[in-house]
Amino acid sequence: MHKAQSIPHAAKIFSGTASEALAVEIAKHFGCDPGKLSIQRFADGEISPNYLESVRGDYIFLVQSTYSPGDNLMELLLMIDAAKRASAYKVIAVLPYYGYARQDRKDRPRVAIGSKLVANMLTAAGADRIVTMDLHAPQIQGYFDIPVDHLDSHAVFIPYIEQLQLKNLTFAAPDVGATNRIREIASYFNADMVICDKHRKRANEIASMRLIGDVEGRDVVIIDDICDTGGTLAKCAALIKEKGARSVRGNDYAPSVEW
Rank of each mutant, 00 (worst) to 15 (best):
M1T: 12
Q5E: 15
S6L: 14
P8A: 13
G16P: 03
T17Q: 13
S19T: 13
A21P: 06
L22D: 12
V24N: 08
A27S: 15
F30S: 09
F30V: 14
C32M: 13
D33M: 14
D33F: 10
P34M: 09
P34I: 14
K36D: 10
R41C: 00
S48E: 10
S48Y: 07
D58R: 04
Y59I: 08
F61Y: 15
F61K: 07
Q64N: 13
T66M: 09
P69D: 13
D71Q: 07
D71W: 04
N72P: 03
M74Y: 01
I80H: 04
A82L: 01
A82V: 04
A83V: 01
A83P: 01
K84R: 12
R85C: 05
K90S: 06
V91R: 04
L95F: 07
Y98A: 11
Y100I: 05
Y100N: 07
A101V: 04
R105Q: 07
K106W: 04
D107K: 01
G114R: 05
M121W: 15
L122G: 01
A125M: 13
R129F: 08
R129N: 09
Y143E: 08
F144V: 06
D145F: 08
V148E: 05
S153W: 05
Y160D: 06
E162F: 06
Q163Y: 06
Q163G: 04
L164I: 02
Q165F: 05
L166V: 06
K167Q: 15
N168G: 05
F171G: 00
F171I: 01
A173V: 00
T179E: 07
N180C: 09
E184H: 11
S187R: 14
F189S: 04
D192S: 14
V194N: 03
I195L: 09
I195F: 03
C196A: 15
D197S: 14
K201R: 13
K201S: 11
A203S: 12
N204A: 11
E205V: 15
S208H: 02
R210G: 02
G213S: 07
G213H: 07
D214H: 07
R218D: 07
V221C: 05
D228C: 11
G231C: 09
T232Q: 02
T232H: 04
L233C: 07
K235A: 00
A238N: 10
I240A: 01
G244A: 09
R249D: 04
R249C: 06
D252H: 11
W259F: 14
W259H: 04
W259D: 02
